[in-house]
Write a protein that binds this DNA or RNA. Structure first.
Lengths: 194, 194
DNA sequence: GTCTATATCGGGATAGAC
DNA sequence: GTCTATCCCGATATAGAC
């Protein structure tokens, strides 16, 4: 039983998530991250080589998580409508559960150094490709209307991702309600006259 | 006839747009902005009181522009479907024409000092309210399916806004094609079986 | 209206003791 | 593994000449 709570490495990362999400990577001083974690700034360097490493670990962990979840959906389900539905659910579930983390993924790509940026963008690309696979397959099987697969994937990902910016746990809507609203918008559209 | 091109004030602002969009507000040194504008950093202070003023002017100008365009749509059109269609068109048109500017509006809200932030968020709120008015009216007149007006407005705005991040003039798709794709996704949804 | 020179500060990172 | 002390740099902003 660990009375001090999580290991320091985790505490630092969590403090970084908080600060990066609230003030942005560049505007968040390492000293403040250290203060929240309950140590001195210099002590961070025992756990991480530099500030950038914090950002990279946050982004990588969660992009991998996101990809794994979607991969799982593709393995478990076969029917296009169900696949898309579960993909939306998985995406929104993760973006509300790890709200701050995904907000960082979505707003701090520019703050990454070139090699790190390439790495994270590759993970994002993988994700987009998986979504596009669902759409392409669904169009071929005549479940979805024919349309631009790439742009459609961007649109779906963009709207489901933005949930992380406005969703408040304990607010007017539950995660499940939000998922249902998005499912309907994406799958059925707004028109009443169908 | 002005051989030097635009007045310096404009040149500085344009340089700021470029740098803020590429590196982010905090990561963009005033010296670099000055260099692009062809002057020394100190000279910027003859035209603007400080760095923050550059950011505020960029954001305010374009949020006002966005609101004016949507206001115009509401005044000119009455039919809900046409209103929504024109709103999408207006939004995407502006977000592709002033790609960098709206990218900044969308990613640097956090970099604003409190009073400036309140001001810009108020403008954004006005915009959201206008979109919600279109949706509410359309639902009442049975043109749109009943649904959560607020969340739907967020979803529409989010996906149309993100166009600014991937759109490249002269790329595979023209602005008009992009607008048509988004119209269809939003209004009709993905299902083929309607 | 633009320059050079500089004040001032805060940030990331390092050294070395404990 | 954490501390104190400090280095060093780059950033915004100002002063004052031209």
């Amino acid at each position: 039983m660990r009375l001090e709570g999580a290991p320091m490495r985790e505490q630092i990362l969590e403090a970084a998530v908080q600060m990066f999400a609230e003030y942005g990577y560049h505007a968040a001083p390492l000293r403040d991250i250290a203060r929240i974690a309950g140590i001195q700034a210099a002590s961070i360097y025992h756990h991480y080589p530099n500030k950038q490493a914090l950002l990279v670990e946050i982004m990588e962990t969660h992009m991998v998580r996101l990809n794994a979840a979607l991969q799982h959906v593709l393995e478990v389900y076969d029917e296009p409508l169900q696949r898309l539905s579960e993909a939306i659910s998985s995406h929104i579930r993760l973006h509300t559960t790890y709200k701050n983390e995904f907000f960082i993924v979505d707003t701090e790509i520019r703050a990454l150094e070139p090699e790190n940026k390439a790495h994270i963008l590759a993970l994002r690309d993988t994700y987009e490709k998986l979504v596009q696979e669902i759409l392409r397959d669904g169009i071929e099987r005549k479940v979805f209307r024919p349309g631009d697969v790439k742009v459609t994937s961007y649109a779906i990902i963009a709207m489901c991702t933005e949930v992380a910016t406005w969703f408040r746990p304990g607010g007017r809507l539950s995660v499940l309600q939000v998922i249902e609203i998005y499912r309907q918008i994406i799958i059925e559209g707004l028109l009443a006259t169908h």
